[in-house]
Design a protein around this nucleic acid. Structure first.
Lengths: 343, 343
DNA sequence: TATTAGCACTCGCTAATATTGAGTGCTAAT
DNA sequence: ATTAGCACTCAATATTAGCGAGTGCTAATA
């Protein structure tokens, strides 16, 4: 990223700050009034022309004010922006807004969404922790009917996964309970991958009739790993309404493209999965290659991870590119941190 | 509902049929062309004037064509409409589009939504069966940590409910398993209300240390009954996109009011709960008192119920008031019937 | 008496035109 | 190097004109 003269930075700064608030192109006269270096509109215009040449701002049409480009935002975020510190009081408020007694992780994630929504007025998204690397706490087989067995897996962190598998024959509940107990004996805080090895080993030692049942379970392990068969238990999306209130989506065509983009959750899931394994804040702006579907949208993401070491998920905030980064970035960051503590 | 002359009925019929397709006010000339009784536009106009006086149609403005009112639709549905029979082949197709092997009820309900969406191009909604009257199949306690116990309840029909309860002391898993076994011995196809009585009785006989734990569970039963604490596991909503494509929502204001109305799911839940216990098809039109939130929308609902007798839920279809009732009504009806069979 | 042709009238829709004003780039003066 | 001054651009808004689909009424007709 090219270096920018202090004066240039200040002009860019005020353009973006103002554009974030009003969503209207910003003119030279306004900047001249705001700027600490007392310059006339004409001088500002010269600076603006340079900034435009460098690609940080552009004019929607001849003789309109200037609007930040994606690179403009990027420069602003990386070099100019000083994010607001969250006050101790605000932190305490955020923390206390979580009600964690007797709630499973799903509800806690929803609380995070609501909190983010309240504070930011943008659209929060949360990816639930994946189960592959999470340690199993408990496994249980319950007979539903002749050939269907319900497998309940409880993971560290309070995540419960229910799967129905087809059995090869009619198992009795007592028989199933025996296997449950047996398996629970060896589970003992292993994750699925490890457990798979142990179970396969065990089969060799003890070729009982539940050989095939176990096969079914192992197959099922792979299911849990690879297939998210209900997106609704994996990606949580907060209220869209706030986004629709933003002026850039105040016409029919744009609001429709927005709805269409969110209808298929895979784009969002992909984005959140990208950042899940990485530390810290990630920001996708405007027409980034990773987030090119909707022009004019930005996404701030952060990953969370329990201290016990099972894999975490990520949270994010979707807003217009002209979103209030100074507030949004530390908020996303802190809520991710809160989630780490809570889980 | 007032009686209508056959001639009047025919005119009303063609107005509605045409309006359903084009969404434009229908003029006298067009009706004169369609009508089997060969009348001139002028005569049709006379009839239209009468129909307007009776409140079945209205003019959006002087010298526009006529548009059906809510009472118009009501009369049409109750007295004129002949719903299309679904052919055997279509029925077979619908039935075979369900993949029920190894799927829990939630996924089956989602399949119903997708099917309805494909056929109707409106917005399907499904209310999951409530658990109060459903028979319990299995109950299981799993220790999460010192004071948190996960209670898993499996209901007939494949519904699984997970609840975390706070224990009064630190239970060992072995201890909990014993209670699980004990409870499972007496569950045996009772529903929660019945079970509650049995358990309370049992407590008197056998004042063990799990007295207080059971108390916690009983309290929890009430929770399952009264509180739906995650709407997302209760009400399933299909794709909104189809609705937004309808011409009545083709402007910014209307689309926003629509989104806002659906953001809060309680209205829809209330509506579906109203019809859950009743047999057959229910239709809410336009500005019915039960469904007055969004003008121009209609809802068709039907309840489903498993044969084994546990309480069912209901499915519905939200579309514009000018929806294709002839197709939508039998489709909702048949899919509800399919659900009865499958569950 | 029921029906219809004829006609003047209404009013939303579309396109064409005029007006406004915020903001610019350039030039010449400071 | 900075800036006042000025002509110019162009979206947005308001204004006007014309079209045409559809009406209600009246008088003629079967």
């Amino acid at each position: 990223m090219e270096e920018l003269n202090e004066r240039y930075q200040e002009v860019l700064y005020y353009i973006i700050e103002e554009y974030i608030v009003t969503a209207n192109p910003v003119g030279s006269k306004f900047i001249a009034g705001k700027c600490s270096l007392n310059l006339s509109p004409a001088s500002i215009r010269n600076i603006m022309a340079s900034l435009e040449e460098k690609g940080y701002i552009y004019q929607p049409y001849f003789s309109a004010g200037r609007v930040p480009t994606s690179s403009g935002y990027k420069f602003y975020i990386n070099s100019i922006l000083k994010t607001k510190k969250i006050s101790k009081q605000q932190k305490a408020e955020m923390r206390s807004s979580f009600n964690i007694s007797g709630k499973d992780i799903k509800k806690i994630l929803w609380q995070a969404i609501n909190l983010l929504s309240e504070i930011s007025h943008y659209m929060p998204i949360v990816l639930a922790p994946e189960r592959t690397y999470a340690n199993l706490l408990h496994i249980e087989f319950i007979k539903l009917d002749k050939l269907n067995i319900l497998v309940i897996m409880v993971f560290e962190g309070g995540f419960v996964e229910n799967k129905i598998i087809n059995a090869d024959r009619d198992y009795k509940q007592i028989e199933l309970s025996k296997y449950s107990i047996k398996l629970n004996g060896i589970i003992n805080g292993h994750n699925i991958d490890e457990l798979k090895d142990i179970v396969i080993e065990d089969i060799d030692k003890d070729r009982e009739s539940f050989f095939s049942l176990l096969n079914g379970i192992i197959f099922n392990f792979d299911l849990v790993k690879n297939e998210i068969d209900n997106e609704n238990d994996y990606l949580f999306i907060g209220s869209r309404m706030n986004l629709f209130d933003e002026p850039e989506f105040s016409n029919y065509e744009k609001i429709k493209s927005l709805i269409k983009a969110f209808e298929d959750k895979r784009t969002i899931i992909k984005l959140l999965e990208l950042t899940k394994q990485k530390e810290g804040i990630h920001i996708f702006i405007g027409s980034d290659t990773e987030w090119s579907d909707i022009n004019g949208l930005s996404v701030i993401t952060a990953s969370y991870r329990s201290k016990k070491g099972f894999a975490g998920g990520s949270i994010g905030l979707i807003g217009p590119s002209r979103m209030n980064y100074a507030l949004a970035i530390p908020t996303v960051n802190y809520i991710a941190k809160l989630l780490c503590d809570i889980i």
